[in-house]
Structure formats: structure tokens, C-alpha cells
């Protein structure tokens, strides 16, 4: 959407159920809220989630947000191939695509002037000994690349979005966010 007055960043995060797509989106939304922004988070819900693709839409803005659903995102994080086919073509011209090259074997072919960042999200997470944290690696890379919010701000918000029984993973998720950000600095 056009926003001549201020920030209006529409983001889609997509992958398959179990990759922590919704958690990454909630963390992004929580981080933005704590930074004083207007924010909405919209999950895919119901039958669509089971076994298929999972996705969520986050909008971060300086003004009240009209609709929480996103048709043309400025930024897209895709963690598997099916999500790339589904959302890749919807990316706004001039937008930012971060793709997980561990599960997407060939470089995405998208029309228009799109900035593409290839992130080995699963590989980095496995190196950390936390294979489930690939979502955080991806989010860290996005935060670094986009520059709206910092990975440190995101790690401070982990406590708010993780259920208490997962608070023991805060350290490793913080590290995953940091590694993702480092990767974005070094390789893109």
C-alpha cells in the first residue's frame, strides 16, 4: 500500500507448519509494538495450517493500520519451496525477499526489481545445535537487512511471546537471531 506520510511496512512470513512461522511473526509484531509502532499480526488459521503451508502477515506502521491482511508485501521471508511459489509473485516491486536456501534448491526467479537474500537458515540453526531455531535465523537476517528494528530488540521481546516452559530456549534463540543478522551483514 502507498504510504506517502510515513512507515507502512507489510511483511509476509511463510513456510510449513512446524517451522515456527507464527512464532517468528508474533515476535516481530511484539518487537515493533515495544518500539512504539502501530502493528497488526494476522495468522493463517483453521484447516489451512494442518500439514500444509503456514503463513502470517505483519504490518508495522506509524499510522493506524487499515487492514491486517496483506496482498502485496514489501518484505517476504520464505522458509520452504511451496511458500516461495505462493507468495513470491506477490512481492511488491522493489521489495525484499529472504529465502531459505536449505529447503529451496534453486535461486528464485522473480520479475521486477526485487532484492534477494539467500539465507542458509536451517544450516546455521543446526550449527548452533538448535535446528528448530531456523525461524529466528531468518528473522535476524530480515531485521538486519531492513533496519527498522534490531535483533537485540527482538531478543528482548522473546520472553513476551514464548510460553514460560520455553523460556529456557531464550539464550539459543537470541544467538540464532544474532547469527542471522551476522549472515545478512557478511553475505548480502
Amino acid at each position: 500500500m502507498i504510504a506517502p506520510n510515513g512507515l507502512y511496512e507489510e511483511i509476509v512470513i511463510a513456510g510449513f507448519g512446524g517451522q515456527g512461522i507464527l512464532l517468528a511473526g508474533k515476535l516481530l509484531a511484539q518487537t515493533a509494538m515495544k518500539a512504539g509502532r502501530e502493528v497488526t499480526f494476522m495468522p493463517s488459521y483453521g484447516a489451512e495450517v494442518r500439514g500444509g503451508t503456514a503463513n502470517c502477515m505483519v504490518i508495522i506502521a506509524d499510522e493506524p493500520i487499515a487492514c491486517p491482511t496483506v496482498s502485496q508485501p514489501e518484505s517476504l521471508m520464505v522458509l520452504n519451496k511451496a511458500s516461495l511459489s505462493k507468495f513470491g509473485p506477490r512481492l511488491k516491486p522493489g521489495g525484499l525477499l529472504l529465502w531459505n536456501n536449505c529447503l529451496i534448491d534453486s535461486r528464485p526467479e522473480l520479475n521486477g526489481d526485487v532484492e534477494m537474500v539467500s539465507v542458509p537458515a536451517d544450516e546455521v540453526a543446526v550449527e548452533l545445535g538448535a535446528p528448530k531455531s531456523a525461524n529466528m535465523v531468518m528473522l535476524g537476517a530480515y531485521l538486519q537487512k531492513r533496519g527498522l528494528l534490531t535483533p537485540d530488540q527482538a531478543s528482548e521481546a522473546l520472553r513476551d511471546v514464548l510460553a514460560e516452559r520455553y523460556h529456557k530456549t531464550i539464550a539459543v534463540n537470541t544467538e540464532a537471531l544474532r547469527r542471522g543478522a551476522e549472515f545478512a551483514v557478511c553475505h548480502a
Binding site: 508474533k26 509484531a29 502493528v39 494476522m42
Partner: peptide, 10 residues
């Protein structure tokens, strides 16, 4: 509606 129920907002 489904949007209002599902969406998260501050």
C-alpha cells in the same frame, strides 16, 4: 468477524 477474531493488535 474472522479477521477481528484472529488478528493480533496492541
Amino acid at each position: 468477524d474472522g479477521i477481528l477474531g484472529q488478528m493480533m493488535e496492541p
